[in-house]
Computed example of a mutant assay.
Amino acid sequence: MSHHDQLSGVLSQIKAEMQAKKLWQATPPSAEAMASQQPFCVDTLTFCEWVQWIMLPRFEQMLAAGMPLPSNSDIYSMAEEALKLEPVETSRLAKLFLDLDNCLRTPH
């Protein structure tokens, strides 16, 4: 399995888990909210909104275009803290973010 295929699989699992836990939204945030310059858009979006509307689409674009992928990632640290605030069980989702970090840290 190629590195891109592995990453695509992890991203698909994150999306599916967010949908299963009802953390997926039907309506996007405002353009202003998505234009935040803060890491993870912490001043305008929840972590799950950032994942759905910014992180996942960016990775999908990178994969589709064959662009180089980041070689360092620490999304898990943010996910671990942010997911504590969600009213549902999120341990599997948190582990998927760890899988994502590990996938990106693996030499490609």
Rank of each mutant, 00 (worst) to 15 (best):
H4S: 11
Q6R: 08
Q6G: 07
L7I: 07
S8M: 11
G9Q: 13
L11N: 11
L11K: 10
Q13K: 14
K15C: 13
K15L: 10
K15S: 15
A16D: 14
M18D: 01
M18N: 01
Q19E: 09
Q19A: 11
Q19T: 07
K22N: 15
L23E: 04
W24E: 04
W24H: 05
P29G: 03
P29L: 02
S30E: 00
S30L: 01
A31W: 01
A33Y: 02
M34I: 02
S36T: 02
Q37N: 04
Q38G: 06
Q38Y: 05
P39V: 00
P39S: 01
V42L: 04
V42K: 03
D43Y: 02
D43W: 01
T44M: 06
T44S: 15
T44G: 09
T44L: 07
F47P: 05
F47C: 07
F47I: 04
F47K: 07
C48E: 03
C48K: 01
W50K: 04
Q52P: 10
Q52E: 08
Q52W: 04
W53N: 07
W53M: 08
W53F: 15
M55H: 08
M55F: 11
L56W: 08
P57Q: 03
P57Y: 03
R58F: 13
F59H: 08
Q61N: 11
Q61C: 11
Q61M: 12
M62L: 14
P68T: 12
P68Q: 14
L69C: 05
L69I: 02
P70H: 09
P70K: 10
S71Y: 03
S71M: 10
S71I: 04
S71G: 14
S71E: 10
N72T: 10
N72F: 12
N72P: 06
N72C: 11
I75W: 13
A79T: 09
A79E: 10
E81L: 08
A82M: 05
A82Q: 03
A82V: 02
L83H: 00
E86K: 04
P87C: 01
P87N: 01
E89G: 01
T90I: 02
R92S: 14
L93P: 12
L93D: 06
L93R: 09
A94K: 14
L96I: 03
F97N: 04
L100S: 04
C103W: 05
L104C: 15
L104S: 14
R105D: 15
R105T: 15
T106A: 15
P107T: 13
H108L: 15
